[in-house]
Computed example of a mutant assay.
Amino acid sequence: MIDARLHRWLSPLLGRRHPARRTPESFRPRGTSSRVSRLAARYDADVDEALRRLWPKARIYHDGEFARDRADFLLVVRGRGVMVETKVKSDPGVFRGSTLPPLLDRLARDGRRLLILLNQGDPTPARELVAAKLGDRARIVVWSGPEHDDELRAAVEELIRQESRHPL
Rank of each mutant, 00 (worst) to 15 (best):
R42T: 08
L74F: 03
P56Y: 15
E151R: 03
R153A: 14
G15N: 07
R78H: 14
H62Y: 08
A155V: 00
R38M: 09
M83I: 02
D110K: 00
R113I: 09
M83P: 00
A108V: 00
A40D: 07
L6M: 10
Y43K: 00
G93M: 05
S98H: 14
S37T: 01
P29T: 06
P123L: 10
L39D: 09
R59F: 12
N119R: 02
S11G: 12
A131E: 14
R109V: 01
R8L: 13
R80S: 10
S37F: 02
A155T: 00
R139T: 07
L6N: 07
V47Y: 04
S164D: 13
L168Q: 01
D150L: 13
S11C: 12
R139F: 12
S98A: 15
V82E: 04
R137L: 15
V156C: 13
N119Q: 01
L104A: 06
G81V: 01
L107A: 01
L13E: 02
R53C: 06
E151G: 11
R96I: 12
L100H: 04
L159S: 02
F27W: 10
A154T: 11
V94Q: 10
H62F: 14
R52D: 04
I140N: 07
I60A: 10
R96T: 15
L75E: 02
V82L: 06
G64N: 07
H18N: 14
L51H: 01
R35T: 14
N119Y: 03
A131R: 05
D136E: 15
E151F: 08
G93L: 10
H7R: 15
Y61F: 13
G79P: 08
L13R: 00
R80F: 06
L152Q: 01
T86P: 03
S144R: 02
F73V: 01
H166R: 12
L118E: 02
R59T: 13
E158A: 13
V88Y: 02
D46A: 15
M1K: 05
M83F: 10
D46S: 10
R112A: 15
D72N: 10
R80H: 05
V84Q: 01
